[in-house]
Simulated assay, not measured.
Amino acid sequence: MALFNVWTFIFTIINILVLYYILKKVLFKPVTEFLEARENKIKSSLEEADKVRQEAYKLKAKYDEMLQNADNEGKAIIERAQKFAEDKANKIIEDANKEAKAILERAKEEVTLEKIKAMHDLRVEISQLVIDAASRVFEKKLPIDDEDIINEVIEEAGASWRK
Rank of each mutant, 00 (worst) to 15 (best):
108 K>H: 07
149 I>E: 14
61 A>S: 14
42 I>R: 06
156 E>L: 08
157 A>E: 06
163 K>L: 03
132 D>Y: 05
108 K>V: 01
93 I>E: 08
159 A>N: 13
38 R>S: 07
74 G>V: 02
16 I>P: 00
99 E>Q: 15
135 S>E: 14
121 D>I: 00
98 K>T: 07
40 N>K: 14
67 L>R: 09
130 V>M: 15
89 A>Y: 04
76 A>H: 05
25 K>M: 07
129 L>W: 01
133 A>S: 11
158 G>S: 06
85 A>T: 09
163 K>R: 03
53 R>V: 09
7 W>P: 00
33 E>C: 02
6 V>S: 11
95 D>L: 15
138 F>H: 11
84 F>C: 01
52 V>N: 09
146 D>A: 10
16 I>T: 13
21 Y>A: 12
8 T>Q: 05
42 I>E: 08
88 K>W: 07
93 I>Y: 03
84 F>Y: 14
85 A>E: 15
52 V>R: 12
57 Y>M: 14
156 E>H: 06
163 K>H: 02
96 A>W: 01
10 I>D: 02
36 E>P: 00
11 F>C: 02
110 E>I: 01
28 F>T: 02
33 E>V: 05
45 S>C: 02
123 R>H: 03
30 P>S: 03
83 K>S: 07
95 D>I: 08
134 A>Y: 09
14 I>E: 01
40 N>M: 06
24 K>P: 00
129 L>F: 02
63 Y>R: 12
49 A>D: 08
30 P>K: 00
54 Q>I: 12
88 K>P: 00
149 I>Y: 15
114 E>D: 06
13 I>E: 03
98 K>Y: 11
82 Q>D: 12
82 Q>K: 15
154 I>T: 15
146 D>Q: 13
73 E>L: 13
36 E>Q: 12
74 G>T: 08
13 I>Q: 04
58 K>M: 12
111 V>S: 11
7 W>E: 03
147 E>D: 12
156 E>S: 08
11 F>I: 05
109 E>M: 07
60 K>H: 09
8 T>L: 08
26 V>W: 04
142 L>W: 11
95 D>S: 08
66 M>A: 15
160 S>F: 06
107 A>Y: 08
144 I>D: 11
91 K>D: 12
76 A>I: 03
17 L>E: 05
45 S>D: 12
128 Q>V: 04
158 G>A: 10
80 R>W: 04
29 K>D: 05
154 I>K: 15
8 T>Y: 03
56 A>W: 10
130 V>K: 13
13 I>F: 11
122 L>E: 15
51 K>A: 13
128 Q>M: 09
101 K>S: 10
88 K>Q: 14
23 L>M: 04
86 E>K: 09
85 A>I: 05
159 A>W: 00
90 N>K: 12
70 A>P: 00
143 P>K: 03
49 A>H: 07
76 A>N: 07
65 E>M: 10
83 K>E: 13
100 A>E: 10
7 W>S: 02
102 A>S: 09
52 V>S: 10
130 V>D: 09
51 K>F: 13
60 K>D: 09
12 T>E: 06
92 I>W: 04
